[in-house]
Amino acid sequence: MTPTEFLVLTRGPLFDIAVTIFVFGIVLRLFEVLILGRKADLAAARGAEFKPGMATVMRRFVPDREKLQGSPVVTILGYLFHVGFFVCLLLFVPHIELIHSTLGISWPGLPTAMIDAVAVITMLALVGLFINRLNSKLLRFLSTFEDYFLLVVVFLTLFTGYLAFHRIVEPYPTALALHLLSVELMLVIFPFTKLMHTFTAFLGRYYNGAMYGRRGVES
């Protein structure tokens, strides 16, 4: 297979398949979660549900003192990684183009030099998180194969993107195809791994906030 054929494959049919599985999986998983439903709470409410639910969704974005003290590495690197990843994903022009072509929406991108720096920071954060997972007794205990594997997969999406952008791997079609391939891998496993928290964390936070809110507590 020539590099261009490889690129055409990853840019065409494989991307199609990956996106189909991704969307299928997300929808399936969301149904699996939501159809289980929630029993109506018969206890007289002290507070509302909706507003506190939404408030908790927002509040858990903010790292508090306890997290910074108790889990500084996870909190700081985790934060860097999440922000960095989304900056690279959503503010790099070629990515915006992709979104524009599929969803028809578009926004201005960041200068590539900035994306470049953010990508490096994000990759370093991921490496740090990986090392931390291996080093901390607590995290080593909690970690499953999936936890390490996903760090690698997410790292690969950034790393291959970085290689392609800087043409470290030649020829370019191969580099771009590798990038697409790693993204496709991530898309395919996404719904069936903890990556799903990208969606369910919002549900979970909402439920948490709503259940506590009903009892008059800000959670």
Partner: peptide, 12 residues
Amino acid sequence: ALSIPTSDLAGA
């Protein structure tokens, strides 16, 4: 654009 998938994403 180079980064746009060549396939029918909307269909997918």
